[in-house]
């Protein structure tokens, strides 16, 4: 099947300011693609190019096999803006009705279902919506026409944890039904649990595209053992994958990448009273990419438009 998004040398300059340079990106059908980068890196620029809100300086792109200039492609896209602006006296529900009509009608039961799932209050005038409710309205309008391709710019900002869980479930359902999601964030933790792949953009350039499963394998795990008596450091030195080993009396701290088997067996020779193993910190790998790139692009001084 053809790619949902395909860009080649996609570049956007705002005057002399670089927004995005030479982006080659492929998003495959049915995947959830996490698009990561600090604020101002070019995430929103990419998204707005895909939606034809702004026009590329050069380069080529296709979305769902079509030129984004063709307005028909937007019928198959659901979009949540990063900074959702809603204002005025109009009731949130009436605005939703307008969006649904402009999209040629949406089954009311789908909307009702989404409103219930997210526990949104749409009886409020838009100018008076809380940040959380605004974001909920944004999600409802993005999901309601069951689009083939969802573009979600910083979707979880402003949502409380319970609603975040519900939202992640919605994203998984979209993937299960074979549809595609592009989800941007500046925090990996927000997207790692639903994404199949992540792309990392920095200073207007795509610096890496990684499989989340592969990223997790590379991940460094922090491990802590507490014993009933002091243990000798030598017993743990030179074990495969063990780094930053610190033994202080009866406690041991280290990081481990790869299998923890050898470490566990070494520890088993003593009496373990307590053990802590933190979730692999993908954030750390993620940040490694950033610091690698830091030097190279330090001169660029790129900033995204507000």
């Amino acid at each position: 099947m053809a790619a949902v998004v395909e860009t080649e040398g996609l570049t956007k300059f705002y005057g002399h300011r670089r927004g995005l340079e030479d982006l080659d990106l492929e998003i495959r059908p049915g995947e959830v693609f996490g698009y990561l980068g600090p604020n101002g890196a070019g995430k929103t620029t990419t998204i707005r190019l895909l939606l034809d809100v702004i026009r590329p300086t050069r380069g080529r792109m296709s979305v769902l096999g079509m030129d984004p200039r063709d307005s028909r492609v937007r019928a198959r896209i659901g979009y949540l803006p990063g900074e959702l602006a809603l204002e005025g006296r109009e009731k949130a529900g009436d605005y939703l009705d307008f969006l649904a009509r402009a999209r040629g009608g949406v089954p009311p039961e789908v909307v009702r279902d989404l409103v219930e799932r997210l526990d949104a209050d749409l009886s409020v005038p838009m100018g008076k919506l809380s940040k959380g409710n605004k974001q909920k309205l944004g999600l409802i309008q993005a999901f309601m026409h069951e689009p083939d391709f969802l573009i979600l710019d910083e979707p979880t900002s402003g949502l409380d944890p319970l609603v975040q869980q519900e939202f992640l479930a919605m994203v998984r359902e979209v993937r299960t039904s074979g549809r595609t999601v592009l989800m941007s964030s500046h925090v990996l933790a927000e997207v790692e649990h639903v994404s199949d792949r992540v792309g990392i953009v920095r200073a207007g350039r795509l610096v890496a595209v990684e499989d989340v499963a592969a990223l997790r394998e590379k991940a460094v795990r922090r491990v802590e053992f507490h014993f009933d008596a002091p243990v000798p450091r030598e017993a743990f030195e030179g074990l495969p994958g063990v780094r930053e080993l610190r033994v202080e009396g009866a406690s041991l701290r280290c990081t481990i990448d790869g299998r923890p088997d050898a470490l566990i067996k070494a520890a088993a020779r003593f009496t373990v009273v307590h053990m802590v193993s933190a979730e692999p910190d993908l954030e750390e790998i993620f940040l490694t990419y950033y610091s690698d790139e830091e030097g190279r692009h330090a001169d660029a001084g790129v900033k995204e438009p507000a």
Partner: peptide
Amino acid sequence: ESGTLELTMTLPIERKR
């Protein structure tokens, strides 16, 4: 200027229209 146009622009409506 207020940003509310962005969502309208992403509807399947041609800009000319």
